[in-house]
Amino acid sequence: MVELLAPGGSLEMVKAVFDAGADSVYVGVKGWSRRASRYELDDEQIIKAVKIAENDGKSVRAAINAMPKTHEIKMFKEKLDFLYSAGVDAVILNDVGLMKIVKDSYPDLKIVASIGCNILNYEEAKFYRDAGARMIVADCKLSMDELREIKEKARVGIEVLIHANTDFTYLGKCWMSSYKALRVESINGKSYYVGSPNRGGVCFRPCLMKWSLIGNKTYAEGFNLPNTMFLLLDEIPELVNFVDCLKIQGREYSTGLIKKIVEFYRNFMDACIANEVNLDDWRAKLHELAKQRDAERIRKTIELMKVADNEIRI
């Protein structure tokens, strides 16, 4: 049975997504995931999240996928010890070297290779599998045929994003944001790079600025570099037959909106399994959700761009 994984940007969101029908939730470890710290959970909150999940017979994944500095690997191991003892079901990692550490320390702890690993082919999937990953998150740009081939040749669990954003670049292989602006801070002694998602901070979303194409003259102006909403629907009836997990991204959105999105996909997946799907009806419902979601994203993007502009002035 394919798993529905939902975001837990707060304890309130953790409870809400389980109520809405998620099978599991992923939470960011404070200072250690690819999102702003206000959408991450501290140790006490992670313990509470695990208890909430256990009460519902569900599970928690911990995203610890920011790249640490070498002297922080000891802190990573301490955090790993905590997560294991807290009872998380899996850790989401970006760095293949850290996967080896987890595999050696806690062989029974499930490792998920993060979207930031940007795994694009079956040879790479095999490499991550051998490094310890039991599941890989597929890039949104991979086709159904590519996913099938990876599954067949690498024999590793596949997680597919059904609500996310597709970026101008491959996710995890982009440092346009930190090229534009960067500030180095610290959270509990762990470095925190505001402007670098790979290193645990926010992305300033430079894609969404107004760009011009210039050379001998201005060829075009006022365009964005592609960064668009990614919502799957029509593909899900086929995906549920061979992938292992469908993931809804969105720790940074409001709990109310995320709850609605999780309910929508839970009901749709159940309808698919029961073979009771009229896609036109579901498309119309998703269209309404997408409008609400876009409105929230635009507000967030404007906030982030202001932060980036302030960084440059500093």
Binding site: M67, P68, K69, T70, I73, D95, V96, G97, L98, K100, I101, N118, A131, G172, K173, N198, R199
Partner: peptide, 13 residues
């Protein structure tokens, strides 16, 4: 450079 080698753990691997 696009291999994303950020940590000493990955260098060791």
């Amino acid at each position: 450079g696009f291999t994303n080698i950020y940590t000493s753990a990955t260098v060791e691997l």
